[in-house]
Design a protein around this nucleic acid. Structure first.
Lengths: 212, 212
DNA sequence: TAGATTGTTAATCGATTAACAATC
DNA sequence: TAGATTGTTAATCGATTAACAATC
């Protein structure tokens, strides 16, 4: 589908394009030029055209881009037409919030199971799922073949959990721990969310304020 | 403190350096060379030296870096010795999880208040704080002068909440909404966490799997 | 002193921006 | 056709890597 290999910088801009195009569509836009979109998004028109051209020719000279078509194309590129089965590992505060807060289907996933070690959490209902005991994980994976996992366990359990999941056939991780999956497994697909690092970066940003 | 202007790429690596150095210290390391650190972190030794040299000369030729000193320096650069007063706006599932999940003090902040509109949430206790009615926000800010805010409200309320908070003197946002604060306010410090975009990126990553 | 490793300059690589010919 | 705007090539900018002199 995608030409050879698309740079990470481009990929990270795609979800934002997709969101903006959705808003434009909602607001009744039928066509948009790279210049107009660049003004709305705070990018250069050049960059937008370069980005889209990584994947094909979606525009029309003299006209611009058809908003709805372009959005669909980007959706396909992002694989949002899939429903990759995903499980949640660690249904504590954070895991629960993530499972509840997001619309998985519109992002290419379905959440099909949730697991925890804590007896107080097991049996509870989150996002329409009954939290199961991690002891049943092997059996569940054998039966339901989840492909992706949200890793929301404490750091102390991260390495062991990840290794087990890989053993059960999990290929992709949405990783909320600081365990460095990418370093340990070159072949596994990983997207990290490091909330602590993000807050730390905000702290750095405050230097601008205090240094005055 | 920091030389002129440090590139964003460098800044985003600092929290990770800080974490790794903490682990090394825990494991009894006293000194480390850029080469050894590069192997542990999956970077090049060159990059590590370049990064550190943005802020000063922390090493010693022929020896390497003192782990504990270096960590302290990076901590100072990140402003982790501060306790910037921060408030949580939106104490729903996600807001609650974030407030509970993270150690704010070790990241340069103290969480001093939590607010919501929902009567079912107001009065509840999270992270040692009683959730207050947003109606009391103006008064609270006048009295307690929070500098930073976690924005965890629904998209529909994001713009209005942000504008209000800026009016009450908030200078920095940890933004979990898709409202584009940076675009609207060039002078405000913003760190975005776009969970939806992150999950979407993971979906793109799965192309590698399905394309085969 | 000899060996090691930094700090720093130079070379390379990649990403962004500018320019413009192609074309709707 | 004339005007607009893409797709794409070339120029610029910035970040990473390599090399090495300085020095502990």
């Amino acid at each position: 589908m995608a030409k050879n290999s698309i740079s990470n910088s481009v990929i990270r801009r795609l979800p934002r394009y997709y969101r903006f195009l959705g808003e434009l569509e909602t607001n009744g836009y039928v066509r948009i030029s790279s210049r107009e979109l660049s003004e709305k998004m705070g990018l250069t028109a050049s960059q937008i055209r370069q980005d889209f051209n990584c994947f094909g020719e979606f525009g029309q000279q003299g006209y611009g881009y058809n908003v709805s078509d372009l959005r669909d194309e980007i959706g396909k590129i992002l694989g949002l037409d899939r429903k990759t089965p995903m499980i949640l590992i660690g249904a504590g505060n954070l895991g629960k919030a993530i499972a509840t807060h997001l619309d998985f289907v519109s992002k290419g996933f379905t959440l099909i199971g949730a697991f925890d070690v804590n007896p107080e959490i097991i049996g509870k209902n989150i996002a329409g799922l009954t939290v199961m005991d991690v002891n049943g994980l092997a059996e569940f994976c054998a039966e339901n073949k989840p492909v992706a996992a949200i890793l929301c366990v404490p750091m102390s359990a991260a390495a062991e959990s990840a290794e087990r999941l890989i053993g059960y056939g999990i290929k992709a991780f949405w990783n909320f721990t600081h365990y460095d999956l990418r370093m340990e497994h070159k072949d596994i697909i990983v997207e990290n969310v490091h909330l602590g690092d993000s807050l730390t970066t905000l702290s750095y940003g405050l230097n601008a304020l205090y240094d005055k």
